[in-house]
């Protein structure tokens, strides 16, 4: 038996909207620790790892771990029917083939429920080791989205290089070249405008811009995004889901010829 009541129900919609264009079907794993989702995109270039902690829920009961396979497009359709301030409650039986979403308006004057069919999905679960990253940059999520969008209009790949001078995003294409450098800024008046760079060693990696741009669909989740890079390993692009969990994207670097 699963029962989970999330006061900030809109968080679920934001998470699903952020990943549904990369992954069509996925298992949402539920256990006493909360909700998690791990899935590779259809071309197996990137990996999505989401976790929502049980204590993020006003009420959370999960009698035994379960895997709920679902179409993320269909899940997005259901969650789109929730009001932006609605409280969302999920209910599922241990051996059922459906999950029910109940949406309650904050004034309790409207209640709706939607039953979503579950599906069996074979998925490969990968172990993600803890990594000591050479460079970690925490920047406004909107700024990251803008850089991805701007550079995508010029080229297909981006070199992200972190040095003591800052983090430089470089691309080139038929139009020409483009460089954007982000420097540490911890003195901005608003905390949401601050950029923090933690550099242990210089590092430069090349990535396909279309994936980095896709990750920016998580922008509504958080004020900041954190990019963590180390040599010859995937970049981790992390959005905190307030103090409730995280949504992480891993992207394999491109290997230069």
């Amino acid at each position: 038996m699963l029962e989970a009541r999330l006061v900030q129900g809109s968080m679920l919609r934001k998470v699903v909207d952020a990943v549904k264009d990369l992954v069509s079907d996925a298992n949402i794993d539920v256990s006493s620790s909360g909700f998690s989702l791990q899935a590779m995109d259809t071309s197996h270039v990137s990996l999505i790892a989401m976790h929502l902690r049980a204590d993020a829920f006003e009420h959370f009961r999960c009698d035994r771990p379960m895997s709920m396979g679902m179409s993320l497009a269909n899940l997005a359709k259901v969650l789109k029917c929730a009001g932006s301030d609605d409280i969302v409650t999920l209910k599922a039986n241990d051996d059922g083939d459906t999950v029910t979403f109940m949406f309650e308006s904050p004034k309790e004057d409207r209640v709706s429920d939607f039953e979503l069919k579950l599906m069996d999905i074979d998925s490969e679960h990968l172990g993600i080791p803890d990594t000591d990253y050479c460079a970690t940059v925490t920047m406004p999520a909107g700024e990251y989205a803008r850089i991805c969008k701007d550079l995508s209009s010029i080229g297909d790949t981006v070199v992200i290089s972190a040095t003591k001078d800052g983090v430089k995003f470089t691309t080139s294409g038929d139009v020409g070249t483009a460089n954007v450098t982000v420097r540490q800024n911890t003195t901005a008046d608003k905390k949401e405008d601050q950029t923090i760079i933690d550099l242990k060693e210089p590092v430069a990696l090349t990535f396909a811009l279309r994936y980095l741009t896709s990750f920016a669909k998580a922008t509504p989740l958080a004020t900041h995004v954190t990019l963590s890079m180390t040599r010859e390993l995937p970049v981790m692009v992390e959005y905190a889901i307030q103090d409730m969990g995280h949504l992480r994207f891993y992207l394999a670097p491109k290997i230069e010829d």
């Binding site: 270039v45 990996l47 990968l126 080791p129 396909a208 995937p234 394999a252």
Partner: peptide
């Protein structure tokens, strides 16, 4: 895609 490796080669199957 050209020059692009699969993410699964970086993480062990668990």
């Amino acid at each position: 895609p050209e020059g692009q490796t699969s993410i699964s080669q970086y993480f062990a199957k668990s």
